Simulated scan of single mutants.
Amino acid sequence: MHAESDDRGRTVVPTVVEPVPERGTAERELGSRAPNFIKASRMLHLSWQVGVFVVGLAVVGAGIVMLPLPGPGWLVIFGGMAIWATEFVWAQLVLRWTRHKVTQAAHKALDPRVRRRNIILTTVGLVMIAVLVWIYLWKFGLVVPWKIDQ
């Protein structure tokens, strides 16, 4: 950077203007979001962190159980991570990375070429399934399971 002088003979040092983040995309500070009266006492803050960890662990554990069972497993796991992120920097960084990747995938999915490809692949897949169902029905007919002769 070079300094320039204005008409009054003063040296003007240009400032670096950082881009303003879009609305709603500002990054929050890393660190504990516990109330100040809890942060004031070391023992109380440590107890708070243990409680947040246990509650987050229970929610993440429930999400892991829901992965093979019916239920919103991944949503519950990310909810547990959000609970951990209220207190732990590592969880905040994981959530930032995840949010960044999800945003990238959403932008990529909105690309017209990708959407066109996905629509074509979906249409081809549905046509193939329809043809296979038609062949099955043509060859075997419609036989409901409760009327099969044994």
Rank of each mutant, 00 (worst) to 15 (best):
A130T: 12
L95M: 11
L67H: 07
I120P: 05
L137K: 04
I77G: 00
V89C: 06
M128S: 12
L121E: 08
L67C: 07
T123H: 10
T103L: 14
Y136W: 15
T98L: 15
P72W: 04
V133C: 00
L69C: 10
V94E: 14
G141R: 04
G71W: 02
Q92V: 09
A85M: 12
P72G: 06
I120H: 01
W138K: 12
Q104H: 13
G125W: 04
A109E: 13
P70K: 00
A105G: 03
R113S: 02
A109T: 09
I119G: 02
R99C: 07
L93Y: 12
V94M: 15
T98H: 14
L69N: 12
L69T: 13
I83W: 10
W74N: 11
H100S: 15
L93M: 15
W90F: 13
L142E: 01
F88M: 09
L93G: 10
V127T: 08
G79V: 05
V143T: 08
L126Q: 08
M81C: 15
L132Y: 06
P70N: 00
T98E: 14
R116Q: 07
Q92D: 06
P112L: 04
L110E: 10
I64E: 11
T103C: 11
M66S: 02
G79A: 08
A130R: 13
I77W: 03
N118R: 04
F140W: 11
V133F: 05
G73H: 02
R96V: 11
V114R: 14
A109V: 05
P70G: 01
G71Y: 04
R115T: 05
D111L: 09
W84C: 00
V124N: 03
P72A: 07
V127D: 05
I119N: 08
L69G: 09
W134Y: 10
K108P: 00
T123Y: 14
V65E: 11
L121F: 01
L69I: 14
T86E: 06
G125D: 07
Q92E: 07
H100Q: 14
W138H: 09
L75K: 08
G80Y: 01
L110P: 00
A91L: 09
K101N: 15
L142P: 00
W74L: 13
P68Q: 08
P72E: 08
V89M: 04
L137N: 02
G141D: 04
T122Y: 07
I135Y: 15
Q104T: 12
M128R: 11
I119H: 07
L126V: 03
